[in-house]
Design a protein around this nucleic acid. Structure first.
Lengths: 354, 354
DNA sequence: TGGCTAAACGAAAACGTTTTCGTGTTAAAA
DNA sequence: TTTTAACACGAAAACGTTTTCGTTTAGCCA
């Protein structure tokens, strides 16, 4: 078991100085053709690779991106990571991930662990608990220390950084309009409590769509689920709430759900109550994941293009990282930070009439 | 925007030496109570944190684990990561991920990127292409350089390292036995080509179960799908193959699928052909993911306990990392490397009779 | 022969830590 | 008063690079 070889060892072995070895390997013209060949041959033989940590220390950049997300067992988030990793790798960066588990404390700890030199910048999506507490000091401090952040999906406006978001309002609107044009008269929405920004926005899109078509919203058709019920342990409770929604709205004929789980659960309840999808009730969900594709009937969904979000976020971050050195725009300019909106697509499947 | 403060700056500001600052912060008794307080107060004020990269360089360990997996958009793998991250964090480690995309080249590149000092050890699951080519030199070389590897799920015996695997044979056997005891007489299996080790093992378990119950296996009941069909683009082809299986075995009354997708697709085809699950046909799948839980009928599955696998793998790796320094066992001992087998559980749901 | 230039190489600093080994000062012991 | 020991602190090396700025040697010309 031979440890990795270093410049120093090569230098010693070949009886030259460290500087000579370094230069020879980088093909400096300062070094004679002879020694260059000798050094390179030796290095190749021993499979020399420069130590990354030493480089990071010297260059004061790690070529590593920190990702902090609420959870990873989630189609959307893993798609985003895929996108980030793709462009990061292509541009010579590594990716280090931390999970907040939707907890404020873990989010803070994770950021501190990484902000001490381990990474050059963050890509993150805010934990629910943080959104509730509205305590964003850890983001602000990180940014103030000169470490750029790119936020995606769950963002808050007051933080000065680049953002990549989905057009939640527009996406929801498209979905509801589809239901309307498909003949639905009484469209229910299954959404989250308002502090989850995306839930709120999607609800807003729902209301806008109704309004645009002169449909009076009915509060009994709006179910705001406590998102603790998103965890698998509380599936029963979720089903009960949805069942209640159906029973108190006998004429319901369309459902817009802000995520897949709500949608498939709604279909399940509907079937149990004797409705048939899509003939009696049509269903559309946000987030195009595995469930939508493989449920029966398969779900018409609003695709968020998670991978594209990840790619865009990584590009934004790396651009900023590699610009910082030279161009260094005036930081107080109006349009210093960018917010990219990724358009959603409506993917039609079997849960709506065609 | 003030950059992160360093020991040197604190030293200069307080007019003491760097060593004094370092010692004061670590509460060395060498330093007087007075200066200690002064330094610590100053450090706190400026929110000093030791630079991780510098520490890594000095200590020659990064406290970072490299994970390389085929893909991340996959319930099982993301569960494993969750487990790894959990214990890694608890034990003071970070986690850096690379995706091989099932490609041999990307696997090699990724390992090289990380093996140059960025991490202390690997946790990985081998890419399909690598398994096909049976070229494992990059693993061997990494290990020879003194960097420990822990492999999980997709492993190969010839590589000297710790391993965490699922008892695929036993799990498959349990599933098939459940079908048998539920009265199935003609049990089909939908599996992958043999070079995917887990597919092969699960097939083996299927055959063992049949044999144990004196049931003659029929080759027409064994469908080995080209796993290119696992990607969503080829769903139609997958359905066709499965439909063929049904049509050439009219008396089929049980299906064991080696993954969720095969199982839900089988159920879909079955329904289309007029079979009812579980009355006409009972279905069990390997891998307990989201699909199983939320399909209708929900799937009886063999749970692999992905998170537990991740936790165990991380513990094995970190144990080895922290042992290496001191105890340093004789490397040629028989039982130098450990293989942990995680037991599977059969989770009964609606796709089998109870 | 003296001086100059180019070629080939080495010394040393820097990145930010920790730690070992001095060193100077002061107070206590002889 | 001298010796010793404790105390408080600093200098420097080390981790592995890259890069700037010498320094040496040889060759060339006058």
């Amino acid at each position: 078991m031979k440890r990795k070889i270093t410049l120093k060892q090569i230098a010693k072995e070949l009886d030259v100085s460290i500087s000579t070895v370094s230069k020879a390997l980088r093909n400096s013209i300062e070094i004679s053709e002879d020694t260059r060949q000798k050094v390179q041959a030796f290095a190749k033989l021993y499979n020399y690779r420069p130590n990354n940590i030493a480089l990071s220390l010297k260059n004061r950049k790690t070529k590593t991106i920190g990702i902090i997300i609420p959870e990873i067992v989630h189609h959307f988030f893993s798609k985003v990571i895929t996108g980030i990793e793709l462009v990061a790798n292509k541009r010579g960066y590594n990716v280090i991930v931390g999970l907040s588990n939707e907890s404020f404390d873990k989010e803070v700890i994770n950021m501190q662990m990484l902000a001490n030199g381990s990474i050059d910048g963050f890509i993150l999506s805010i934990a629910k608990e943080t959104l509730q507490q509205q305590d964003y000091h850890h983001f602000i401090e990180t940014i103030n220390q000169g470490m750029p952040i790119v936020m995606f999906d769950r963002v808050v406006n007051e933080i000065p950084c680049d953002k990549v978001i989905v057009d939640d309002i527009e996406g929801a609107k498209k979905a509801v309009e589809k239901l309307i044009s498909n003949g639905c008269k009484h469209i229910g929405i299954i959404t989250t409590k308002d502090y989850v920004s995306v839930g709120k926005l999607r609800t807003q899109g729902y209301l806008t769509a109704l309004d645009d078509h002169k449909i009076e919203p009915e509060s009994s058709l709006i179910l705001k689920v406590d998102d603790k019920l998103l965890s698998d342990d509380h599936l029963d409770a979720l089903e009960k709430e949805i069942e209640q929604l159906f029973k108190s709205n006998k004429s319901i004929d369309g459902i817009f759900a802000v995520n897949e789980l709500y949608a498939v659960t709604a279909m399940k309840v509907a079937r149990k109550l004797g409705y048939e999808v899509p003939n009696d009730i049509q269903v559309i969900s946000f987030t195009d994941g595995v469930l939508s594709k493989h449920s029966t009937p398969s779900l018409t969904t609003v695709s968020q293009h998670g991978q594209e979000i990840g790619e865009k976020a990584a590009d934004l971050l790396i651009n900023r990282l590699e610009m910082d050195d030279e161009d260094e725009i005036a930081e107080d300019e109006e349009e210093y930070y960018e917010t990219v909106i990724i358009e959603t697509d409506l993917i039609e499947r079997e849960s709506t009439k065609s």
